[in-house]
């Protein structure tokens, strides 16, 4: 008997005969019924406000824009405020590449010590102020980890209330290699419990929220 058979046989010896798959599935679904009784409420009635409150609480900085076309100028403001040169690693996503970046030099490759990366969030989740990114041909995962400043553009129509709403929103899509929920800049408390930002990933997470992305 190989290890797989040994393990499955040992399990069946303890749990008894398997129930019909449909019965197991129904029981699993019932365990998630009425999610509101077992999860925290939102920080504010309105999604964008609830998201912003929670994101700010974990150290994420936030800018609000009306339209996508204003994004390059907002990135420029951020770079200036941080005293950074006007050069960023840009996610090769159509929604970003199609913008007029004017005086900002953009490049697709990510250096080992890249200063700034600008990307597009797939979703925002108001419950904890999280941003979701999915890996793919137009989204290298390392953009979110090798950079010191991670700037994410979040379209407000991609805001979801709770974690379960994200699971529901993606359940019929093919799962990407990586689906990453980002909740604040990288940090550690491993030395005497004192909190330090920028452990291995970005020390700064900046979100540009765009109210109307129909000009995309």
């Amino acid at each position: 008997m190989n290890a797989r058979q040994r393990i499955l046989t040992a399990i069946r010896g303890s749990t008894g005969a398997q129930r019909p798959v449909a019965v197991i599935a129904a029981e699993a679904a019932a365990l998630l019924g009425r999610p509101e009784v077992a999860r925290p409420g939102l920080a504010a009635p309105e999604l964008r406000e609830a998201f912003a409150l929670k994101a700010a609480a974990v150290g994420t900085t936030i800018d609000h824009l009306d339209r996508m076309a204003e994004v390059p100028a907002a990135v420029r403001r951020y770079l200036d405020a941080q005293g950074l040169p006007a050069a960023v690693a840009l996610q090769p996503a159509a929604a970003l590449a199609g913008l007029d970046w004017g005086g900002i030099a953009t490049h697709p490759d990510i250096a080992p010590d890249e200063a700034v990366g600008v990307g597009l969030a797939e979703w925002g989740i108001a419950e904890g102020g999280s941003l979701v990114i999915h890996s793919g041909p137009d989204n290298p995962v390392l953009l979110a980890f090798l950079t010191l400043h991670h700037v994410l553009v979040l379209r407000e129509d991609r805001l979801l209330p709770h974690l379960e709403d994200y699971a529901l929103a993606v359940q019929d899509n093919p799962q990407p290699r990586n689906a990453i929920l980002i909740t604040g800049p990288s940090g550690t408390t491993d030395i005497e419990g004192s909190y330090v930002r920028g452990a291995h990933g970005p020390g700064f997470l900046h979100v540009i929220m765009v109210r109307d992305s129909s000009d995309l």
Binding site: P92, S135, P137, V141, R177, I180, I182
Partner: peptide, 19 residues
């Protein structure tokens, strides 16, 4: 409430994936 990174890893690099 949540850690900074909650990451789901599903299989290896897909055709065309950036990394």
């Amino acid at each position: 409430e949540l850690t900074q990174y909650t990451t789901f890893h599903c299989g290896p690099k897909r055709p065309g994936d950036a990394d």
